[in-house]
Amino acid sequence: MNIFRLAGDVSHLVAIIILLLKIWRSKSCAGISGKSQVLFALVFSTRYLDLFTVFVSVYNVVMKVVFLALSYATVYLIYMRFRNSYDSENDTFRVEFLLVPVIGLSFLENYAFTPLEILWTFSIFLEAVAIMPQLFMITKTGEAESITTHYLFFLGLYRALYIANWVWRYHMEGFFDQIAVVSGVVQTIFYCDFFYLYVTRVLRGKGKMSLP
């Protein structure tokens, strides 16, 4: 465990909690892509099957269980409890355009052709693109509430810190996970445009982020 990893995990947790609290307190999930949240729940569900096969540490188990529970809680709030506020008309990203290539790629490029390894690879590739319905929704409506942008900021920060973590681990532990690193870098690139808007519009300006 290095400082980048820990800070990355904390950022990830903060992002998820920000989103959950925003929905819970405002009793509304307006502006939130339910599709992205379902994809994240799918990411955690397929990746953390290793809870049953490998024991790494207590920290590892606790965090995985927490991420799973929080992601399902978020999906529950959006599609069940506060579904009246769910903006399905603007959450129109075609998820199959992500799922089909991701499923195909995870069969082609993996560490072992076994169900668990293919599902693990699937979760890595899917995580890289799972935020796209949310970014698409913001582009479509042309605006995002500041709290939604804080959520995206912490999610992007988590990815950036994981890259620093991989650089550290490569030098210190000789560890290099090609699948995770390549898709992690791709994923981080998706956030760059958003980071720019976040700094120039949200931090320096008003509450909402509106696109030009």
């Binding site: 990830h12 290793d50 995985k64 560890f175 996970d177």
Partner: peptide, 10 residues
């Protein structure tokens, strides 16, 4: 022990 390190990450 690359396998364990890989499953260590979240």
């Amino acid at each position: 022990n690359q396998e364990l390190l890989r499953h260590d990450e979240l």
